[in-house]
Write a protein that binds this DNA or RNA. Structure first.
Length: 549
RNA sequence: GCACCCUUAGCUCAACUGGAUAGAGUAUCUGACUACGGAUCAGAAGGUUACAGGUUCGACUCCUGUAGGGUGUACCA
């Protein structure tokens, strides 16, 4: 109502001034609170066209502005031509009322109703354990999915994996080698490009326990068994790690199925028919140079095997065909090279590439007291996500991985993460929630009647601390939306930090227990609404909101 | 060489997509209620937004160039 109301009265004023309606009316929240609750820069925009000084135009608009004192209390003009609006006490009351009446679902919206979103994240192949980069990917993807979910979109959380090809043979040979070594043949050669992680030995040990030396003959049957066992072991371990962070995905899409279902062949023929591919040197090339990119690339090697581009494009084509309206891919910076190829390919197959949102996140470095940590102290190998989770807990991991824009390198400060004190930003939010709960507990255990007629609070005048908090409440929904449309969870984190700060400020300046009845009632409403914002905000981030700490 | 990302206070980061005096946390210094929870709050100090141009009423933000850091750049995935 606020924006539309301002639009209405400003449009009226501009109409009276005879200004054509092809201007762009924008209202901003000023950084400096002294400037008011909203500001408008229309006068500056019109200066050129009207050939008048902005400040004069602003004054003209002000003279013609008719507003309801129940909503707007004051409008003023400031150099060089800003028009500043201050809302009335009644307006703040209405804001609080509607937030309170939203109940426990405060923040939930319906703007995504009947729109299907597919968020793809993690997508690690089942050949090993998750590392820190996967952690950032997982937390970003899951939080983005949560954001869409709260906006009412129909969200599918998807994981794309490949359990075929060279890498799996490599895994099999690695396990087999460790298996032979475990059985006593310590000199048994380890494959040159094998997986050196300790987990391979764990898998081998399990095989020894289960099968003893029955797999020693490296025939095809045994190889398949080892491969299957290794794959399942890795996959279960990965899923287990994700579950610790409360990440559960809906669809696990197997790259191999693209081959067995004939999708790859179908795509190849599609490209050929559209004249987008050609044969050269025994290989099949995609005409990317005609799609706006610099060079053509091979999609089928002369050996007959496809390169990674082909299944990647086929997979995205399938996502479109499955009826998704929005696709979100979360990739690490190392995938940067494949993105333009896939986008171009999909576009030239006739799909709307603007529906594809690719989130590329930069790398993670682990530091402790300013020094980069490369290896885990315990194992001497590089840190796994599991180790990190064990060390600092899921809440801290989730928070740290999403608290920065995905464009920047993430410095994960292990010392700070381990610290259970005021220095750790996670606790700042959780503490605000716990404190909220605590005051409410105190209130409701006294003779307080929490069954409040909210309209009775209309006569109250809020103080500056209350107004600041209520204004902050009114922004919750728009920040969820902003974070989702930009696919940047950190935006919500920043908002919640600011909200918690406003809450603590309110707490210190506005006593509840010893206030008179009406004020007590209104502060209860403020507390309860604040609690829901903190709780729902933390829930979107995938972090618990304890009632006591 | 080329492509993408980054460079803001001692350190870690913001700045609502071009707005007003560039803000937080941390570190340093100072202060706070009868502890509705001090894991909090208030204040001081801290800046040539890497550098040089340009676009305009206005630039941390957009454009060009330079320097530094990161990630890629296969008939590897």
């Amino acid at each position: 109502m606020k924006q539309t109301y301002l639009n209405l009265i400003f449009n009226n004023a501009l109409y009276k001034l005879g200004v054509e309606s092809n201007y762009n009316l924008i209202f901003d929240i000023p950084k400096n609170e002294e400037h008011g609750d909203m500001s408008c820069n229309i006068a500056m925009q019109l200066a050129k066209e009207l050939k008048k000084a902005p400040i004069q135009i602003a004054n003209n608009i002000l003279e013609n502005l008719e507003f309801d004192n129940n909503i707007v209390s004051e409008v003023s003009v400031a150099a060089p031509g800003f028009i500043n609006i201050r809302y009335s006490n009644h307006f703040h009351f209405e804001t609080l009322k509607s937030a309170f009446e939203a109940g426990n679902d405060l923040g939930r919206q319906e703007i995504g109703k009947n729109i299907k979103v597919n968020v793809e994240y993690v997508s690690a192949n089942p050949t090993g354990l998750l590392h820190l980069g996967h952690g950032r990917n997982a937390c970003l993807g899951d939080t983005i999915a949560n954001l869409y979910d709260w906006l009412g979109y129909d969200v599918t959380r998807e994981y794309y994996f490949n359990n075929a090809g060279n890498q799996m043979n490599n895994l099999t040979l690695s396990i087999y080698s460790r298996y032979r070594q475990t059985l006593g043949n310590e000199e048994f050669p380890f494959p040159e490009n094998g997986y050196f992680g300790e987990y391979i030995k764990l898998i081998a040990n399990e095989l020894v326990e289960k099968y003893n030396d029955k797999l020693i003959d490296d025939n095809e049957e045994n190889k398949q068994l080892i491969k299957k066992y290794g794959e399942e072991w890795c996959f279960n371990t990965i899923k287990n790690t994700l579950h610790k962070m409360k990440i559960v995905q809906d669809v696990f899409y197997n790259e191999d199925s693209l081959y067995t279902d004939g999708k790859i062949q179908e795509l190849l023929e599609d490209f050929k028919q559209k004249g987008l591919s050609y044969e050269k040197d025994g290989a099949v090339w995609l005409k990317l140079s005609e799609m706006g990119l610099s060079e053509d690339r091979v999609i089928v090697k002369s050996s007959g095997e496809p390169t990674y581009r082909l299944p990647d494009i086929a997979y995205h084509k399938e996502k479109f065909k499955r009826g998704f309206d929005i696709l979100v891919d979360v990739f690490g910076a190392d995938h940067i090279a494949t993105v333009p190829d896939v986008v171009a390919g999909v576009k030239h197959l006739g799909y709307d590439e603007s529906k594809m949102n690719v989130v590329i996140h930069q790398f993670v470095t682990l530091t402790e007291n300013g020094v980069q940590v490369k290896m885990s102290k315990r194992t001497g190998k590089s840190y796994t996500l599991d180790e990190l989770l064990e060390e600092v807990g899921a809440d801290v991991v989730r928070f740290f991985f999403i608290m920065r824009s995905c464009h920047t390198h993430l410095e994960f400060d292990l010392a700070l993460a381990k610290e259970q004190s005021d220095k750790n930003p996670v606790f700042y939010l959780q503490y605000a929630h716990a404190r909220c709960c605590s005051v409410i507990r105190n209130l409701t255990s006294s003779e307080f009647n929490s069954n409040i007629d909210i309209n009775s609070l209309n006569s109250l005048t809020f103080n500056e601390h209350e107004v600041k908090l209520i204004k902050s409440m009114s922004q919750f929904e728009s920040y969820i939306e902003l974070a989702a449309t930009k696919n940047e969870p950190y935006i919500l984190v920043e908002y919640l930090k600011d909200f918690a700060s406003n809450f603590h400020n309110f707490y210190h300046n506005c006593r509840v227990m010893d206030a008179e009845e009406l004020v007590k009632n209104s502060r209860y409403v403020i507390l309860e609404t604040s609690r829901r914002i903190l709780k729902n905000g933390l829930t979107i981030l995938g972090i618990t909101s304890p009632e006591k700490m």
